[in-house]
Design a protein around this nucleic acid. Structure first.
Length: 802
RNA sequence: GGGCGCGUAGUCUAGUGGUUAUGACGUCACCCUGACACGGUGAAGGUCGCCAGUUCGAAUCUGGCCGCGCCCA
């Protein structure tokens, strides 16, 4: 189709080119794309075994394709026959059901009168959107129980325009509610009509009324209609019907129209001789394997869709009337008609010995080769070492749009030809959309060239943007916003590593293990190691559960917020040596460990950046790409440190918040006080007083006893942690507003909590522990509100003096 | 027409019975502090589509409705 379009731009019609020239155009196009896709794959940093590069139209693929065809034919699973197929009149080939896309479209519903053949007045009214097909009519059908037509059954009518006499027949498939309840029967161009005609063997054998391009033709079609396409013929028929008074009326009508996925031409259902694969026997073992959990589909919600299709599977039309493709490997005997299936070249008919053989004119659907991929790419049907070593494979990652075209069929062929499942897990990605929310497609031309994306933002940014923030399994926007976010994140990682490198003393060896911490170790070091372990576990769990986005999200949040924003800022003091050489050493080791191990875990998402950084750090081995995946258990889990650090971070946040509200200049350092809400908090805060003061830019920072008087001339904040006070430079309404907002929020919460406690049902049925917790929460809220009220009183805390 | 799925701040998104509803982008304010302005700090922003039901308690479970998407005919 692409070649066709390109040639059309130069004013050349593909169909009119000599065969060899047309093939050369396709081949040239193929080579260009092969090269481009190769470049894209390399630039994207995909770990591909190029030594096993294969093309589905090379000699080995041809051999596999022939072999598969022959085996299925021998087993009676391939047959040739005249069936109703989807005919693409633009490409002039049959296509499979999957290549037909149905869409609601606007049309005109014509009501035609079929006059009685015996000359009686009146007739039968038939509704159709395709009046041009009257030439192929062989009957008019009504529902057997339809009162209106009881007497009509068995009588004859005259087909309008065609002037042929056809019977009125009864068939239960007719919908009495549609139109006037009578259906024209055109067996060669409508699957339902064909079924109905099949049940009435005495009807005339219809002739074809369209040629390959769906232009009217054939003995039943009047001369003046010959050569008209469907649209033109329809217009002409409507006009002529109107003139003859046979058009009762016409109305607007929406109905579903099938179009060719490739050419967008309206499909013409057409009776034609094609090759088919019987699918039901092939589907059975696949359904069983998926049901038994031997093949798993991720995300598993698609399993249902998969089953539905598999269980209603139709035979697959595999022959195509196009130039490009593997030929149907059959030689037809001119003498006896035998179809000789050819694994190699056949010279005489296997039945009658005649040497008068004609090759089958058709080629195979490209999927008939692709469905063999998992084993054919490894050398099947030869019993190669690769096949023994790598088959069955484990994971297939692909787009959901080819679930049926490719994935389901690979499973079927796998069981059929190798007796084994081709893979154990299938991961379906969503379909990318542009930023306006339109699905990316060649047709819309809204998909960026990966090479452009890589040039602008980098291959790693492209990769990361594919999994973050929109889940890889969902349809979602892929554009500047996601790419910028990914690039910014990777820049952050780059700078983080650069900072860490500045603290690696010369001669530092590779990171063999997590630094051994002791009771004297810094809280931030215990904390970040414990956080790293948690995140490493989360990443591993997410990956093993086929949730790459969960893993990427965990790494994003850890590297940026925990490691860069918090840990690095807190550790700068220790790294400077200001807190002693022992602590500096421990902190350097911790930083290096966490950064190095995080890079390893980020590597699959951003191979280039992490590889580059890893080489700059002390390391062991040739490549990060082939380095081991470290165990999360290298780092100690330390819940106490995590809990304590939460209080420290909360204190910093409260003080910063207070600064902003009170209008303290960003660069100013101001005295502050914290009155902790309890002894545990007090203990933690006193240990980390210097850190809190430094990050919140306050000094001096004093901890107040519960009963100590409140300092004067300060702004304040009440939180679960305790109360914070800060010297304010000037009156700001922002602080008062913030306090009022907080008071209101807590008031609402308290009301809700009290209401719950007042509910007898809650006390009776909720777990006792929950009741206790709720009571505790109510008390805490009351206390906080009381304190806020105290602060809000104009004469309290020296806010204003009277 | 049948089936499947989804509706959570402007946008994307986490969250399968008790949370002060998660995060990212965007927005606003302040800040070029010696890794990073592709940055830092703080803030604002949500009747978890609507209506019933189950439950002591629902974003979460059930039913109906509305809207959207996909697959199949």
């Amino acid at each position: 189709m692409e070649v066709r379009r390109r040639l059309a731009k130069q004013g050349v019609r593909f169909e009119e080119l000599p065969r060899e020239e047309a093939l050369a155009h396709v081949e040239r196009w193929r080579e260009e794309h092969e090269r481009r896709i190769g470049e894209q794959t390399r630039a994207g940093g995909f770990s591909v075994d190029w030594s096993r590069y294969r093309y589905t139209k090379d000699a080995a693929s041809a051999r596999a394709t022939r072999r598969a065809f022959a085996a299925l034919y021998r087993d009676g699973l391939i047959y040739r026959g005249e069936r109703m197929v989807n005919w693409d009149p633009r490409l002039r080939t049959a296509i499979s059901d999957l290549e037909v896309k149905h869409r609601e479209e606007e049309a005109t519903l014509y009501r035609l009168r079929y006059a009685w053949a015996d000359g009686t007045l009146g007739g039968i009214e038939v509704a159709t959107v395709r009046p041009e097909t009257v030439f192929g009519d062989v009957a008019v059908a009504v529902h057997p129980d339809d009162e209106r037509y009881r007497d009509a059954i068995g009588r004859f009518v005259i087909v309008p325009l065609a002037h042929r006499r056809v019977p009125v027949i009864a068939d239960a498939a007719v919908d009495p509610a549609f139109g006037a309840g009578a259906l024209k029967i055109t067996p060669r161009h409508d699957p339902t009509d064909r079924e109905i005609a099949g049940r009435h063997p005495d009807l005339a054998e219809p002739t074809e009324i369209f040629d390959d391009s769906a232009r009217l033709a054939g003995p039943w079609v009047p001369r003046e209609y010959h050569g008209l396409d469907r649209e033109a013929a329809r217009a002409r028929a409507a006009e002529e019907l109107e003139r003859e008074g046979l058009l009762v009326r016409s109305e607007k009508y929406r109905h579903s129209v099938g179009r060719s996925e490739r050419s967008d031409a309206v499909i013409e259902p057409r009776l034609s001789t094609q090759w088919f694969v019987r699918m039901a026997p092939l589907a059975a073992p696949v359904v069983a394997a998926v049901r038994a959990g031997e093949i798993r589909i991720h995300p598993d919600r698609w399993t249902l869709t998969f089953f539905r299709w598999m269980e209603g599977i139709q035979d697959w039309c595999i022959s195509r009337q196009v130039l490009w493709g593997h030929p149907v490997p059959v030689e037809h005997c001119r003498a006896c008609g035998q179809a000789n299936v050819a694994l190699e070249t056949v010279t005489r008919c296997e039945r009658c010995g005649s040497t008068e053989l004609a090759p089958d004119p058709d080629v195979l659907d490209t999927w008939f080769t692709s469905w063999l991929w998992p084993f054919a790419a490894l050398g099947w049907p030869e019993e190669t070492a690769d096949l023994a070593a790598y088959y069955p494979t484990d994971l297939l990652v692909t787009g959901r749009d080819i679930m049926f075209f490719w994935v389901a069929r690979m499973m079927m062929s796998g069981f059929r030809f190798t007796g084994k499942q081709p893979f154990s897990d299938v991961f379906f990605t969503g379909m990318l959309q542009d930023e306006a929310g339109h699905r990316m497609s060649k047709h819309l031309g809204n998909s960026p060239d990966p090479l452009d994306v890589i040039r602008d933002r980098g291959a790693d940014a492209m990769r990361f943007a594919l999994v973050f923030p929109t889940p890889a399994t969902e349809d979602g926007p892929f554009g500047a916003a996601a790419l910028d976010g990914a690039r910014n994140f990777l820049t952050k990682v780059w700078n983080l590593a650069r900072f860490s490198l500045g603290h690696v003393p010369a001669g530092t060896g590779p990171v063999a293990a997590a630094p051994a911490l002791s009771g004297a170790s810094a809280l931030e070091n215990r904390w970040i190691l414990s956080r790293y372990r948690r995140v490493a576990e989360e990443v591993d769990a997410a990956l093993s559960e086929f949730e790459p986005t969960r893993a990427a999200t965990a790494l994003h949040s850890f590297l940026w917020h925990d490691l860069a924003d918090r840990y690095v800022e807190i550790s700068k003091e220790a790294l400077s040596g200001a807190r002693g050489e022992a602590l500096a050493r421990e902190t350097r080791a911790t930083l290096l460990f966490v950064v190095e191990r995080s890079l390893r875990r980020l590597h699959p998402f951003a191979p280039h950046v992490t590889e580059e950084l890893w080489h700059a750090l002390p390391h062991d081995g040739e490549l990060l790409a082939t380095a081991t995946w470290p165990s999360p258990a290298e780092a100690p889990s330390d819940p106490a440190a995590e809990l304590a650090m939460e209080s420290v971070l909360e204190a910093i946040r409260l003080l910063r918040n207070l600064r902003a509200e009170e209008g303290v200049a960003a660069a100013a350092v101001t005295p502050a006080w914290i009155r902790p809400s309890g002894p545990e908090v007090a203990w933690v805060l006193s240990g980390e007083r210097a850190t809190i003061a430094r990050l919140a830019r306050v000094a001096p920072l004093e901890l107040l006893a519960a009963d100590a008087p409140t300092p004067e001339g300060v702004g304040s904040r009440v939180a679960p942690l305790g109360e914070c006070y800060l010297v304010r430079p000037a009156e700001t309404p922002a602080a008062a507003e913030a306090l009022a907002r907080e008071r209101q929020k807590l008031g609402g919460l308290l009301a809700k909590t009290r209401q719950r406690l007042a509910d007898a049902g809650f006390r009776a049925r909720a777990p006792p522990e929950l009741v206790r917790e709720t009571e505790e929460k109510a008390r805490e809220l009351e206390e906080r509100i009381r304190r806020i009220d105290e602060h809000m009183k104009p004469d309290a805390s020296g806010v204003t003096s009277t």
